[in-house]
Design a binder for these strands. Structure first.
Lengths: 194, 194
DNA sequence: CGTCTATTTGAATGTACTCAAAAGCGGTGG
DNA sequence: CCACCGCTTTTGAGTACATTCAAATAGACG
């Protein structure tokens, strides 16, 4: 298992000693995936956090009308944003699906609890991850409230051109909080304008 | 300074020893406030996190059109959701305003850094606070995307009847992501129906 | 009491949705 | 290699939820 990505992600935030690194690597589970595969199903027990080692995943929610809402995409080097797998709770309401071929590293919930107890470095790492996650979610909410769909699409393609290339349009529409039809119309308009 | 609320909030998540409790209390700053007072101004240096010891505060964002968007309310026993004061960054984009008379406890950024380094309990506490905050923000986003304004208002009054009584309607409208006029129409309709 | 702000109400408008149908695209099997 | 199938994207017409603008009413505070 190639673990450079996750180790470098940790080292962006904390300095792990050799013991801690080994401890972390020893509990990770490599999970290769194929495009379209459902890695975590909403309603199931939340067993682990997922780190994208290669390829793209997305975390989304299916509401009571059956509509899906993409919470976030995760490309190589990112955690999936379903963090229910990190809390001692029975189930997650979110699905996590592979959007391309790739590989996830699974970090089991019990291992997380173990890591957190064994070293303040792990507490610190996850404190920072969740702190940033909370800030990101706030910004996302603000952006959804205060900008039009067209603006959100423009800023999305500016910020994540790589995701745009890899991922189906209907998922991007869902991420932006609009219907696939409406995204198509926005794209048509932008193409005509440009 | 009466500090029961914040100590009991910590003890919901971690067990602090006497030294740690003293350490925490020694860095908190009591900040009484009056209704309408601006406690933190967006664009200013983010100096601290704010814990509501009494009364209500709200954190909100003013977008480029000059419209305000309430991110969250904080009643007694809650942290304001502007957590920029916890990261080593220059400024916060959010305002925090007093909605009633009350008192905030200010936890300065440097003190947070100090606490985090001195004990894993503090790392753990803030890890949990941010973890829950991230989950809450995600749920809020999902709710904004997947339900109508009327449904959101209904679930708001069911969940927070106390806030409803204390806080001006236009702020609740902003929290729900709608205009004050439209909230008024929803209320009119519900009153007529019921 | 008068002033200022918040809330209500109404009419016109707009952004985004729904429903429906056509066109495009990718994979699979004959 | 082509034909077909299923799914995604495009396009169009009609609709709905929520907004904007404007004016009237109600409340709060000095």
């Amino acid at each position: 298992m190639v673990s450079d990505l996750i180790l470098s992600n940790f080292s962006e935030h904390v300095q792990l000693n050799e013991t801690e690194k080994e401890q972390l690597l020893s509990v990770l589970i490599a999970r290769p995936f194929k495009r379209g595969e459902l890695l975590v199903k909403g309603g199931d027990p939340a067993k682990y956090m997922l780190f994208a080692n290669a390829g793209y995943m997305m975390t989304y929610y299916t509401d009571s009308n059956g509509s899906d809402h993409v919470i976030s995409f995760a490309g190589a080097g990112w955690w999936a944003s379903d963090i229910y797998g990190s809390v001692s709770q029975q189930t997650t309401p979110y699905h996590t699906k592979a959007l391309t071929d790739g590989e996830a590293l699974l970090l089991p919930r019990l291992s997380i609890a173990h890591l957190l107890q064994s070293s303040a470095s792990f507490e610190r790492y996850f404190r920072i991850v969740f702190q940033k996650g909370m800030l990101r979610q706030q910004r996302r909410y603000i952006e959804a409230c205060s900008t039009s769909a067209e603006e959100r699409y423009r800023s999305f393609i500016a910020a994540y051109p790589d995701i745009l290339a890899e991922v189906q349009q209907k998922y991007i529409a869902s991420y932006l909080g609009i219907t696939p039809e409406f995204l198509s119309k926005i794209r048509g308009k932008l193409a005509r304008t440009a």
